[in-house]
Amino acid sequence: MSSDSNGPRDLAAIEHEAHALVERRRYAQAEVTVSRGLKEFPDSTQLQYLAAFIDYACDRPAAAMQGVKMLLSQAPQHYGARTLYAQLLENDKQLVEAERVWIDLLRDYPQSADCFAGYGELMLKTLHLEKARRLAQEGLRHSPEHADCLYLAAMIDLIRNPRGARSEHLQLMLREHPEHVRSAVALAVALSASGNNRGALRIAQEVLRQRPNSPELVEMVRELKAQTHWSMLPLYPIQRWGWSAAIVITLVAIIGLRVGERALPPSLSETLTWIWLGYVIYSWTWPRLLRRWI
């Protein structure tokens, strides 16, 4: 508190302000605060990390990568910088290198659920489902209510059993983190997978209201809007039961048309064949066109 310690106190205040601005996603203001802070405290690793993070959040991956590498050359053990480095590598499709960073992090922080979740999500992206599941489980063993681990586990449950089997992880996530965006997204995915597209749409729209600048959420809502459009009603069996429904419909149609050829007047049989062909063309083209128009 003395004048000698004025510096550190000011640094703490600047870091606090920058953190608060980053949390509120006011990146332009945060950038000003961080650059002002770095002028006074060029050695502050926390400010350097925040500068790199702001670049990452503002979609400037090259600048973020440069910043994070510079920081890691000074402070190779900086936790935030290492996780950010892993994220940047993942986004840059350098998956092997990203995996190496996550493994290093897990070696240094063997009880960090964040690291298990981060590594697990990388494994999920590369479709190593069993490994992702085990990583999520291990993360949950250390931190049973960790939101990202629960999300990861719920997603794996849904991938393995898309027909709406009860996911305990999803239930736990909804119970423990009801306000978490990922809870809502996971629920929307689960509802959609179980055929309740309208419910999924309502939830996805609610999440989009909170984050209207998320392209992933916009895409999800567009897809669900297309799925629930009235003109998609004739495709309900295919939407609900997927390929098995398509195969059954095709078989029934072929058999029906064959029987119809013999049993019905030729004009009616021909009309039914055209209707069937129309349905096939419609089922292939209409959903794509609709998605584009919505």
Binding site: E206, L208, R209, P212, N213, V221, K225
Partner: peptide, 9 residues
Amino acid sequence: TARNLVKYA
């Protein structure tokens, strides 16, 4: 962004 809100959300 506002369009996303009005049109989709």
